[in-house]
Design a binder for these strands. Structure first.
Lengths: 262, 262
DNA sequence: CGACTACTTGATGAATTTCAAGCCATGTGG
DNA sequence: CCACATGGCTTGAAATTCATCAAGTAGTCG
């Protein structure tokens, strides 16, 4: 049963039929064509391989950039920084992911690309894109799909940030990341996945403060739903996490919904 | 001087050099290749023309969709609806814009596409995409650029929703929309542009309530910066609007920063 | 004229930020 | 091997932004 019927009351607006179906936890946003499969093909067109140490920028906002990058190893964050220091992470890029504009326009970057871990990328000059499109339509198609996946991630984030509470947003975010990480690099022996993000990173992705991420994460882990720190991400109760992400008004645990003192 | 140096104090985190430059009001996100130019070319591959009345869905979330649409006339909103009725508008599509997945995967839609005005679209079956790509590389390129523009819009919105206050977000949003509308359909005789969005639409795009949009809009119009209602959008003071969007700590008007009584 | 939709305004309260402090692990140089 | 710095995490209390609830106005359309 892909989308079970759930009936809830509409506190804000009348519900359209579609609103009654599940919006979180479904497999809609998963790439049917894992980005990592384009690696071997596309690397044929790479001009060089570049390594980036954790914390360094591969490209900075306002730089002109005439390359496309394919992540071989490591994690990146695309982020925008406001004048007063606030920052918004637009997306994370995992191994196999693509960075840059595959439509081939050399343009000023509207975000910086920061390595979260020591990383390596293949560099494809945009000048070789026409050739790539001619010689390997499959790769071209993969690039377009990867661009469309990026759009899906952005829409997912926008929904989390705009219309979900902190608790819901964190749950939804961890669920999405868990899926993406499994797709990109697979799970570890104990079932958990690598997760090199700090609480500040998560906050910057969700438009929340690191302090509030901490409290929310603490609550979720105390309920035995999920644990997430730089050691790794471990979704103990996927069903319940999806429930929370969807919007879960009532509780079957003993804890109160507020952040109780230990 | 494309990006003037501005010095402000860092209330949250130390500033990187890039953070000192302007992030709002720059022309970065404007398509160098206005989407409306792809219309004549692409329509050659259309199988039909479809009209949609205001309020109706062109496609609904969870529908399978095997077409690409090019908007001939009218406005659309891409939106996601949560189980309890909350909704998030992901993007608006103006005349000349493209709706659907140009990578050609027939997939379940992850959002609905609602007409905000009486509208008309050209329908291109995804089955004809391979042919289109072969016969008209220019159109294919335009489709990809339009996809990339959509990503830019999503990233802009994400930054507004995640890291800007309501006041800043509304200012930034109106600035962006003004640019997009001028590009897509041009300005009216008096310098204003058409703007068929309700305050609820704006709220759903920015993750705020219609009530709060009302107050914010009211404040901005009382300051003589901008007026926006369904009659039209009129940016009276673009510079100041950009300042507000960027983050503007102090005031040169007599009004207090709170919503003063009339 | 009544119904409807979009907009307006005020009062109250809740979710989240901000400020402040402290903890724990890890690394590093004397 | 200790002293000390650093980065990431944790917790509390106060302040603020924004949502919610409630009511009312103006314009439009039948």
């Amino acid at each position: 049963m892909p989308y079970s019927q759930i009936s809830v009351e509409p506190p804000c607006r009348p519900l359209s039929p579609v609103a009654l179906r599940r919006t979180v936890g479904a497999e809609r946003s998963v790439s049917a064509f894992p980005a990592k499969e384009i690696l071997p093909e596309a690397q044929t067109f790479a001009s060089e391989r570049r390594t980036v140490v954790a914390g360094a920028d591969l490209v900075s906002e306002f730089d002109a950039c005439s390359s496309l990058f394919i992540v071989i190893d490591g994690w990146f964050a695309l982020k925008r920084i406001l004048e007063d220091g606030r920052q918004q992470i637009l997306d994370f890029v995992l191994p196999g992911g693509v960075i840059g504009d595959p439509s081939g326009r050399t343009r000023v970057m509207s975000y910086s690309v920061t390595a979260l871990t020591d990383s390596a990328v293949a560099v494809i000059p945009q000048s070789r894109l026409p050739e790539l499109f001619r010689k390997s339509p499959a790769t071209a198609m993969a690039l377009m799909q990867s661009a469309h996946d990026a759009l899906s991630h952005a829409y997912d984030s926008l929904t989390d940030v705009g219309r979900r509470s902190a608790r819901e947003a964190v749950a939804s975010f961890l669920l999405r990341m868990d899926r993406r990480i499994r797709n990109a690099v697979g799970a570890r022996a104990d079932g958990s996945v690598e997760f090199p993000l700090t609480q500040e990173n998560v906050g910057d992705a969700l438009g929340l403060t690191a302090v509030h991420i901490c409290r929310t994460l603490r609550a979720l882990s105390k309920e035995g739903v999920v644990t997430a720190c730089r050691k790794g991400l471990d979704v103990a109760d996927p069903e319940r996490l999806a429930d929370i992400a969807g919007a879960e008004p009532d509780w079957d645990e003993e804890d109160a919904p507020r952040y109780a003192v230990a």
